[in-house]
Design a protein around this nucleic acid. Structure first.
Length: 272
DNA sequence: TTCCAGGTGCATA
DNA sequence: TATGCACATGGA
């Protein structure tokens, strides 16, 4: 995929490997709005994405940040070629052709996916927007995602009032289990060790850990198994199984491309 | 009214 | 190690 930096941001040429609807609606991210165009918020940055007949314009004041965020240097055509050879992924890859796995802010990803547990996407988005509004820095026309220091001011009741439900306690606790540098420091760990570290955090089990690994730490060798993937697996492979076995089986099958495979499947399943 | 949503923590055997 | 249950909330 070709892209270039322009005056207002980044210009994406072509539509085969970049589709903003696929990217934002495939369940990997919750902080975005759809008006006439999509607007996405990440940490304290924002971008508005415009579509024209040749491709897309990522309008932003932080082009380098969003070049990384949208993973523009990775060749998704190649990934899709390999994955399409798996029977189960043939249609999902066609359907979600424009998906890219985002490289999201670590702290924001941690908080977001703790909120996501046993919750639905619409409500997850609402809760996270309230957290931004109440504790994030006011920017020009939007709110930044709060830093750990800002969120330390929140009480458990504050999180509950914002709709977090029983996860309010997890949020309150996890902020005190890490310090300001913990997640950055963990980047040097291998995936298996990092996964164990994450699961020691309050509200972080196998599924949430895998999402943080994939969408925050860019570890594409993990395969988050949620209710949708669980359903899909039992339907397609025709056998009952538990999440841990499914996770093992699918990471064996897809290896270093597990995370990509998972996103095409998840997006496809949810569309049906 | 009951079920479900990108599950996890905790008690129990 | 594995299983069962409780857990906030709101839409279908």
């Amino acid at each position: 995929m070709k892209y270039k930096f322009v005056k207002d941001g980044i210009e994406i040429v072509g539509k085969e490997d970049f589709n903003i609807e696929h990217i934002l609606e495939c369940g990997q991210v919750f902080s975005f709005q759809k008006n006439d165009n999509y607007i996405v918020f990440s940490a304290d940055k924002m971008a508005e994405i415009f579509e024209d007949k040749n491709g897309f314009l990522i309008k932003t004041k932080s082009p380098e940040y969003f070049e990384n965020y949208f993973d523009l240097k990775t060749d998704y055509s190649q990934i899709k070629r390999v994955l399409s050879k798996h029977k189960i992924l043939e249609n999902p890859v066609k359907f979600g052709y424009g998906i890219r796995i985002l490289r999201q802010n670590l702290f924001e990803t941690l908080i977001s996916f703790i909120v996501s547990a046993n919750n639905n996407i619409k409500r997850i988005k609402q809760i996270l927007f309230r957290i931004r509004e109440k504790f994030g820095r006011k920017m020009n026309g939007y709110f930044a995602f709060p830093t750990r220091q800002q969120l330390l001011k929140a009480t458990e009741e504050d999180f509950a009032k914002m709709g977090a439900g029983y996860r309010a306690k997890y949020l309150f606790e996890v902020l005190r289990q890490i310090d300001d540098n913990t997640l950055q420091d963990w980047q040097k760990l291998d995936t298996k060790t990092l996964r164990k570290k994450l699961q020691m955090l309050m509200g972080v089990g196998p599924k949430v850990a895998d999402c943080i690994l994939l969408f925050g730490f860019s570890r594409q060798d993990v395969f988050p198994v949620d209710t949708w993937i669980h359903q899909m697996y039992e339907k397609f492979y025709g056998k009952e199984s538990n999440r841990e076995k499914i996770r093992f089986s699918l990471t064996e099958e897809f290896g270093s491309l597990s995370g990509y495979a998972q996103q095409y499947l998840f997006f496809f399943m949810r569309s049906e």
